[in-house]
Simulated assay, not measured.
Amino acid sequence: MTIITVLLFSILGIKILVNIINLITDIKISDQSNPSYDNIPPRIPYIYSLPLHTSSSAIDIKGETESGSIVTLQTNHGKTDVVAGSTGSFLFKVDLTEGDNKFYFYSTDSSGNSSSKTIEYNVILDKTPPDIEISLPQDNTIFYGTENMTVEIKGVSDSTSTVTINDRYVGLADDGSFIFKYRLNTGENILTIKSTDPAGNISEKKITLFFEE
Rank of each mutant, 00 (worst) to 15 (best):
D158K: 03
S177K: 08
S159E: 08
Y182Q: 09
G200K: 09
L191H: 11
A173L: 13
I193C: 07
N166H: 09
L172G: 05
T128D: 00
D126F: 01
N39K: 01
G171A: 03
S161Q: 05
T128P: 00
I40T: 09
S116Q: 14
F211S: 12
V94C: 14
F9M: 12
F211H: 15
G63R: 08
F211R: 10
V151M: 03
R43Q: 10
I59Q: 00
L125G: 09
E152W: 03
E152Y: 02
S89A: 11
D131C: 04
K15P: 12
V83R: 02
D139F: 12
K93P: 14
L50S: 02
I179K: 07
F92G: 05
T192Y: 06
T80H: 13
L209E: 02
P42C: 06
G68W: 10
I207H: 02
Y144L: 12
P45R: 01
V170P: 06
N140I: 10
S36D: 14
T72E: 07
K93G: 12
L50F: 04
R43S: 09
N140S: 10
G78A: 11
I40M: 06
E133L: 06
P42Y: 08
I44E: 10
S111V: 07
I207W: 00
I124Y: 11
D139H: 10
F105D: 06
Y169T: 08
V18K: 07
P42F: 07
S69R: 00
N201E: 08
S55G: 08
D158Q: 05
N76K: 08
F103M: 08
I59P: 00
V71G: 00
T141M: 01
